[in-house]
Design a protein around this nucleic acid. Sequence first.
DNA 1: TATGAATGAGATTTCATTCAT
DNA 2: TATGAATGAAATCTCATTCAT
Lengths: 207, 207, 207, 207
Amino acid sequence: MSGTTGDKLELILDAAYELFGLDGFYETKISDIAHRAGIAKGTVYLYFKSKEELCLAVTRRDCEQFLEKLEEALQHCQQLADKLHVIAAHHTTYHFERRKYTKLVFRAPNNDPELMEYMRNFIFRYMDIVQQVLIEANVQQPRWCAESYIGMLDRVKMDIMFNPEFTEQELHERTSFVASLFLEGCTQQINREDQLAGQRSQEGESE
Amino acid sequence: MSGTTGDKLELILDAAYELFGLDGFYETKISDIAHRAGIAKGTVYLYFKSKEELCLAVTRRDCEQFLEKLEEALQHCQQLADKLHVIAAHHTTYHFERRKYTKLVFRAPNNDPELMEYMRNFIFRYMDIVQQVLIEANVQQPRWCAESYIGMLDRVKMDIMFNPEFTEQELHERTSFVASLFLEGCTQQINREDQLAGQRSQEGESE
Amino acid sequence: MSGTTGDKLELILDAAYELFGLDGFYETKISDIAHRAGIAKGTVYLYFKSKEELCLAVTRRDCEQFLEKLEEALQHCQQLADKLHVIAAHHTTYHFERRKYTKLVFRAPNNDPELMEYMRNFIFRYMDIVQQVLIEANVQQPRWCAESYIGMLDRVKMDIMFNPEFTEQELHERTSFVASLFLEGCTQQINREDQLAGQRSQEGESE
Amino acid sequence: MSGTTGDKLELILDAAYELFGLDGFYETKISDIAHRAGIAKGTVYLYFKSKEELCLAVTRRDCEQFLEKLEEALQHCQQLADKLHVIAAHHTTYHFERRKYTKLVFRAPNNDPELMEYMRNFIFRYMDIVQQVLIEANVQQPRWCAESYIGMLDRVKMDIMFNPEFTEQELHERTSFVASLFLEGCTQQINREDQLAGQRSQEGESE
DNA sequence: TATGAATGAGATTTCATTCAT
DNA sequence: TATGAATGAAATCTCATTCAT
């Protein structure tokens, strides 16, 4: 009545994002979504042909936003280390901010080919961006590196999701940690540690 | 007599693993499972109180096996590098061998607390094993390192799952790559590359 | 519009009353009720949350009607004897008119606490009405008398239900009989009979 | 193994009586009965063709016992008043003793013709006994009187069943009350009361 | 007789989707 | 567009009964 078409579409997407994210695709009823959006059940079907299509739209909006913001953030820095940190921070922060809803990813319709295809594509695009950063810095095997980096970050995401007490403080630490681990590997730390140990043992008799 | 009982339980678990893995929890009907196991629908309920409980049992069997085999494999090597490689190989191979079914992980019942708890626990136990390996090698931040390593491997798992043409050859390459990246970080490679480039440019005119 | 809604609810209640009454709660399938009401199975669940709730609604409608009509009928008479007759006639006639369906009372869901509570309450309300009539006439032990009266009438109801050939003629006779028995007790009749017999034997030799 | 056939049959009947009585026919599972009887589910079917037949057997045993005991008790008295009291006491006591299980009557299979027929028959036999007592005392309309008497007693039974706090004390009072009400009617009490009131008002000015 | 694993018909209930208004 | 009552397919789970041992 008072709103335009666009308004209602947005309302539906918001409601669906929230409920799919909180309860999962299968557990969320169209009527719940309509109720939360403050519209009638039938109206949902004026905008989306099916529950699956709605889920795809929700996912798409979320993922596109994710990529957009990432690209924007990457424009403000030049160095590899900076860029990696930006990527990491974006990944973890994005999911931290949406930690109530991030579960969406586990709770999508299992057998919707369009959604599967979109997700496959999304991850490619995400990897492409990271890969590009690595290529520019002459990193070898940029594709696989990119993928590994995203994997490391996704594990942090899982922690955020599974652990309700995950703090912002921890978020920053973990973010920096992942970036540095990726850059230098774990051996660096061993080496340094060993070197320190070596120095210490030279200085005196220690275990 | 008692063998028959065991048989049937195993038949159900196998059928359920296959169908949950192929089609997802929600898309799989108990009657499908029964049919594939060659038994009657009601029989499933003699062994499992509910579909959720069956799913939990399937998941549990799978995950326990995963951890058992990992620990066994780790006993045959001493060096950090070897151990990391064993972990990586186990992770990727395990999922490669079950690549038709690994989807199970995405397709679990969304809101079954017992399953959620079990999965949470499983990941902890997995991380503990990796962490222990790192601790023995004096790696700093062993917990976070372990987690990152698993994240990197999980990303490979996703590739295996999403990409039907993933080859065994690629599997080995990716496995080694992840282990080495984790050890040395991506900068190592840049450095080497830069050094090589430096050397080459000293020797003559290079691009 | 709103009339339609009411219609459907009424249709369901009518169908359920008929089928629960004829066949019993457990033997009646929701699909039967829907079919008889000329609607879809799912529609029943728009109006009633469960089969039990539907049964409660059916029972409630029936019982409330019973009490309403009773109270109305009682307003038209003053004397105790008249009132007792009205009560008896109402009880027997009500069940005679519904003799095909009265079986409902035996055929309720066994363990629905709400229904149990409602029935318990209904019988109290019924007894209160009868008790009030007795109190106004200074009858001693009005509670227990009321209860006994209802018991006597309920036995007639059972006869009506169990005996398909129960006639309207018999109905009236039984009704009057119960009312008079309740008022005067069975001894009265013995006495009269004895007196009559005594008189007769005094007058001469009779049968 | 250690028991005879008779033993097991009795065990089953006992268990079935208890469970049908406590939970109702539909809510009681054959497996529950077997469990409580300490035998295997299949064994029940060696003794009874179906759940309905078992229920019939349980009911039959219960009802036959009821009638037997009643007839026995009636042999020990001569006067109408005594006999009526014996009938009342037997009815109420029997159900009081079994008050946990009396619910059986409401919870029988709805559409088993054999059981329906048996119950119809049982009530006839019960009424015949009471009727005979009344005939011997020259009570008019002995059939209807008998029926009314049983109705009054059945209402007490209902109270016993529905009211968990029904005491033995109350049981005796109610029993006597019903017997006396049946004999003398409620008017007697009014008359007496009125006479007393009349006497009192003659003796002085009292409210 | 006794067992209890196996069966499978069948019932309730849910909910995505439609469509008359 | 917007509504929401109505639909009905479909899925889980139960449990009386059977039967091989």
